[in-house]
């Protein structure tokens, strides 16, 4: 029995120290609300974007898309936009997040390039896990964005990171570009087969928002011209035209440079964002 009591004493100390650290960290995050500039990986960035939307301020216009639309530069975008574009993610995930957040945007801009990509159930379950979802509202330290390491990385980035001007001078690595483009060409040379259930999901989600008076706008992110004309992109446009005949798709009038065939370089993303502002006007 003695050993049991002795053992428990140490556990109490561990718990007490943990609680103290956790509360202090929460207070620090809650009061200072540090701006996070650097994330550890793309998945964490996706979670941070989603949680930012769920728990913080929601804008009346929302962009949903993949890593392509994630390149849209907030600095160049007109005010009043939230961007729920996820690297490796799907528009269906973004739309579901808006729905489950009980929010009705004025306009939803839907990127079509990867429109029939699978919804990320794991991410949705994790974001809206019962109880935990509510707890994260009151304890910001539990959100992915506020991980202690991100604070450190942000400090490092603010000292050693590239400035906007330096980013604008970035060029692509030709070898990386050629290798990736070759793979993309092969991937885009066939029409997507398993799209029907995703199309149904999309129809349901869009009709949900339309009944709530949201306006849905499709747009296409610029990619390499050879991919713009690919079989898979033509197929997507055909399917969408059949399924949503009254909807137009906003497309860019200019050519932009990509780092890998799909993703815009920083300066091109910046230029496209400015064009996007005009296109949606």
């Amino acid at each position: 029995m003695n050993s049991f009591i002795f053992s428990f004493k140490n556990i109490k100390v561990i718990l007490f120290q943990f609680c103290a650290m956790f509360l202090i960290y929460n207070l620090y995050i809650g009061i200072n609300q540090p701006v996070i500039l650097s994330y550890q990986n793309q998945w964490q960035q996706n979670y941070a974007a989603a949680q930012g939307f769920i728990y913080d301020k929601k804008s009346k216009n929302v962009i949903v898309g993949s890593s392509l639309a994630a390149r849209i530069q907030k600095k160049a975008l007109v005010v009043g936009f939230s961007n729920l574009s996820f690297s490796g993610g799907s528009v269906l995930t973004g739309l579901e997040i808006i729905k489950r957040s009980d929010f009705v945007p004025k306009k939803i801009f839907v990127e079509i390039n990867t429109i029939f990509r699978e919804q990320d159930i794991k991410m949705l379950d994790s974001l809206f896990y019962p109880i935990w979802y509510k707890v994260k509202n009151y304890f910001p330290a539990l959100r992915e964005k506020n991980q202690p390491l991100n604070l450190g990385l942000t400090e490092l980035k603010s000292v050693y990171g590239k400035t906007h001007e330096e980013h604008m001078k970035e060029t692509r690595n030709q070898r990386v570009y050629e290798t990736a483009l070759k793979l993309q060409k092969a991937e885009h040379s066939v029409e997507q087969k398993d799209y029907l259930n995703k199309l149904e999901q999309l129809k349901l989600l869009l009709s949900y928002f339309e009944t709530k008076k949201s306006e849905i706008v499709f747009f296409e992110m610029p990619v390499e011209p050879v991919l713009t004309q690919s079989k898979s992109m033509q197929h997507i446009r055909r399917v969408l035209k059949r399924a949503f005949p009254s909807k137009k798709v906003i497309t860019s009038k200019q050519n932009y440079n990509t780092s890998d065939g799909l993703h815009l370089l920083y300066k091109d993303a910046f230029a496209f964002t400015k064009e996007f502002n005009k296109l949606i006007d």
Partner: peptide, 15 residues
């Protein structure tokens, strides 16, 4: 050391 365990516990929850 108890503090080491507390820090680990803190990082499990936050990081």
């Amino acid at each position: 050391n108890n503090l080491v365990y507390s820090v680990m516990f803190f990082l499990i929850v936050t990081n």
